[in-house]
Amino acid sequence: MQTTLSINGTEHRLDLDTRVTLLDALRDHLGLCGSKKGCDHGQCGACTVLVGGRRINACLTLAVMHDGDEITTVEGLAEGADGGLSPLQRAFITHDGFQCGYCTPGQLCSATGMLGELAEGWPSHASADLDGNYELSQEELSERMSGNICRCSCYPGINAAIRDAAGAEGRK
């Protein structure tokens, strides 16, 4: 089936079997192997990408469902023509937000989406009030990043990196 995906600003016209997930289209058909396959069942978050700025699990969606959509993968997070890392990516390095790195692309895409949600004033289950001004307390952060599992349990570094990039205190 003919499908056009706009990935990191570039249009790709693909002829795909309807069964190909967005994750497999990225990895196997476009060679964008940054997005990882952990569970393939929506439970680990390793495959998180942004569709129209919103984070979703690429393993739980079919590529043909995204004809015409704007997709951002970890390869597209680096900003500028020189491909310089985004502040969030730099913060992950500064704070050692990974060990094996398998969950990292998903963590980065998810946190990028999450910071966008925060900027738009989306509350979470952990938010005490609804004034749209949410500080990234430990509880808020854990709740908002609950879809991304790190098997190496690098959460202290991941949390510090996200807080740092959010402009909050880099508390550990």
């Binding site: 929506g42 978050g45 919103r54 984070r55 739980l60 908002r144 879809g147």
Partner: peptide, 15 residues
């Protein structure tokens, strides 16, 4: 609202 905010995780809730 409380119920919906606790279904799965943010990526699942976006779809």
């Amino acid at each position: 609202s409380l119920m919906a905010s606790k279904i799965g995780d943010p990526a699942v809730r976006n779809r």
